[in-house]
Design a protein around this nucleic acid. Structure first.
Lengths: 218, 218
DNA sequence: AAACAAATTTAGACTAGTCTAAAAATTATT
DNA sequence: AATAATTTTTAGACTAGTCTAAATTTGTTT
């Protein structure tokens, strides 16, 4: 039996390891989990014993295939619930995360399969992140970051990197959401801010914004 | 902050006390929670300290108004989720309970208000039990138990007392569900079994079945 | 009302997860 | 290559919730 805390550590390690590819160090895990390094060490040992992680003292942690499977499954559940909350229960994209953090731990295969079907097998969550299928495969779309977009080309907004409330509300108040058509008019060399064309307006966004918005050619 | 375990104890006490009207003894709580009496004692003390329960040593427990409010709120959440699972996710009425036991602990007012609206403010769950509204008021329907129904009168099935899988599956396989029209043809004095008329069949049910099925005159 | 039975509480111990403080290993700097 | 700084681990303690076993209270018989 896997505990809620174990699941959350596995998820944190998965994200910190760039989807299971890098080795993660103890301090990073502790910080992500908002605990102390000593607590992280204890949990890492436990995950290692239970075959969710590979670990050698002082050398950092990677997830086993088993651990990755658990992580991807939680991510699937998290993102499906986010779609449900936005599409069916009128949540905005900055409100969903906290509730989904809890819903993702409900254990029922039937629940998640039926939810998936009820939502008509969505491939992306409200932030544009891909939803892995039952077998853990991600539906990949090739996206570029606004900061690297070409001048004069039309793109569609397909996701965000930063999912903080502040950023999402900034986008909302500037009329940017998933599907919004964006054309770059000008890149200011001085600070890398950009003037972009939306449907009915032209706005200037800073480089920090441009680095966090994903686009796809239309 | 209230813990998951505290919520479950409060819910158990609420049910055992007949919706907050009777005093409940320690052994009954321990049995309901599948723990030992000593564990129940510890938790009772804690609930008492936190003002969810009134308690004097050796004298049993009652819920405070505060405790009842918590219990009714959990019951509201539990039953709304049950409706969701049956109506939207194709669960059968004997499958919902276990998953709802977990969903009922998700804490988000917006979630439950929106779910309520999404389901169009249902007044009863899939077992016919009333769903309290936001303010904790139950929508009462006056129902009678099949065992006490009159011969020759047509009734509609509005609920069950026993929600065990075995009973619900028995009902399913005999073509009885919420809304089924039932007319009693004969009561056998020897064992209080009953011959009842359904839409396209006549069946005989034992007294244990008849005591667990709620009806309402049509 | 004394003795027994049943229910309840206390005492002490265990696990999961956390913490602080100190020790050990690794990495960086001179 | 030695020392300093950083990271990580260990040791020991704490809380929530559980357990067993013993002690206490209540209630029930005779």
């Amino acid at each position: 039996m896997i505990t809620l805390t174990e699941e959350n550590y596995i998820k944190a390690i998965y994200h910190l390891s760039n989807n299971g590819t890098l080795t993660v160090n103890t301090n990073a895990i502790a910080e992500a989990m908002k605990t102390k390094a000593s607590s992280a060490t204890d949990m890492i040992k436990k995950l290692s014993e239970k075959n969710y992680a590979d670990y050698k003292k002082y050398q950092g942690v990677t997830l086993t295939e088993n651990g990755k499977r658990v992580a991807v499954n939680i991510i699937r559940k998290h993102r499906l619930w986010e779609v449900f909350l936005v599409e069916k229960l009128n949540f905005t994209w900055d409100e969903v995360h906290e509730v989904a953090e809890h819903l993702e731990h409900i254990k029922s295969d039937k629940l998640i399969d039926e939810l998936d079907a009820f939502l008509e097998h969505p491939t992306h969550d409200p932030h544009g992140d891909p939803i892995p299928d039952k077998n853990g495969n991600f539906h990949h779309i090739d996206k570029i970051v606004l900061a690297k977009a070409n001048i004069g080309v039309a793109y569609k907004c397909v996701g965000v990197d930063d999912t903080s409330t502040a950023f999402l509300q900034y986008l909302d108040s500037n009329g940017i959401g998933l599907g919004t058509i964006i054309t770059v008019k000008y890149r200011e060399p001085y600070d890398n801010s950009m003037r972009i064309q939306l449907k009915n307006s032209e706005i200037i966004v800073s480089n920090s914004v441009a680095k966090n918005l994903y686009l796809k050619k239309v």
